[in-house]
Computed example of a mutant assay.
Amino acid sequence: MDTQSREANLDWIPDSGFRLRKAGVQFDAVRVTGDDGHRLVDLMDHMTGGEPGPVVVDVSGRRCAYFLLPPGSTTRRSWPRGALCYNSANGYESYVPVPALRGRTWPLLWRFPPVMADRFVHPVLLRSAVITLLG
């Protein structure tokens, strides 16, 4: 664990490489794949003045973008087609890849790393952006 993640109490971020973390514990996530995911990252960047909250991108294969939201925040909302929620609702388990803050993490990287333990992507803002982008 590096000093930045220790200071922010982000013990769910691995020291090196990347690890799968159970959604619904430290965070929920919304995944959007392909160019839509990367356009959504850019839209959220613009809408928040460069501080959308933690976002992980996969730069190979399906080119996914994972938006990390507060735990439990995706379970009571309907999300548009193209946005896949990761949470632990109703006995459902899902896992999200989380890269280290530094070092070799390919094909995953932080497009926007976490800066505080309780700072996540805002669910309503993200849902609005998804609707705007994906319809």
Results as ranks from 00 to 15, higher is better:
Trp79Asn: 05
Trp106His: 14
Gly49Leu: 10
Gly103Asn: 06
Ala8Tyr: 10
Leu125Ala: 12
Arg76Glu: 03
Arg102Ile: 11
Leu68Asp: 00
Val130Lys: 01
Phe18Trp: 15
Thr33Pro: 13
Arg111Phe: 00
Asp2His: 12
Gly61Val: 05
Arg111Gly: 11
Gln4Ala: 12
Glu51Asp: 12
Asp42Glu: 14
Asp15Arg: 12
Leu43Lys: 09
Val56Lys: 02
Arg31Tyr: 02
Val25Lys: 10
Ser73Ala: 06
Val98Phe: 00
Pro114Arg: 02
Ala83Trp: 00
Ala117Val: 09
Pro14Gln: 10
Glu93Leu: 11
Glu93His: 07
Val130Gln: 00
Gly34Gln: 11
Thr105Lys: 01
Arg77Leu: 08
His122Thr: 09
Val121Asn: 04
Pro71Ser: 05
Gly135Tyr: 04
Cys64Ile: 04
Met1Ser: 08
Gly49Lys: 04
Val115Ile: 08
Gly135Trp: 03
Gly17Glu: 13
Asp42Met: 02
Leu43Val: 11
Cys85Tyr: 01
Leu108Cys: 05
Gly17Lys: 10
Pro80Phe: 01
Arg119Pro: 08
Thr33Trp: 01
Asp28Gly: 08
Leu126Asn: 04
Leu10Glu: 02
Met1Thr: 09
His122Ala: 06
Trp110Ser: 02
Leu126Glu: 06
Ser94Lys: 01
Phe27Met: 12
Val96Asp: 03
Pro54Arg: 02
Val57Leu: 04
Arg63Glu: 14
Leu126Trp: 06
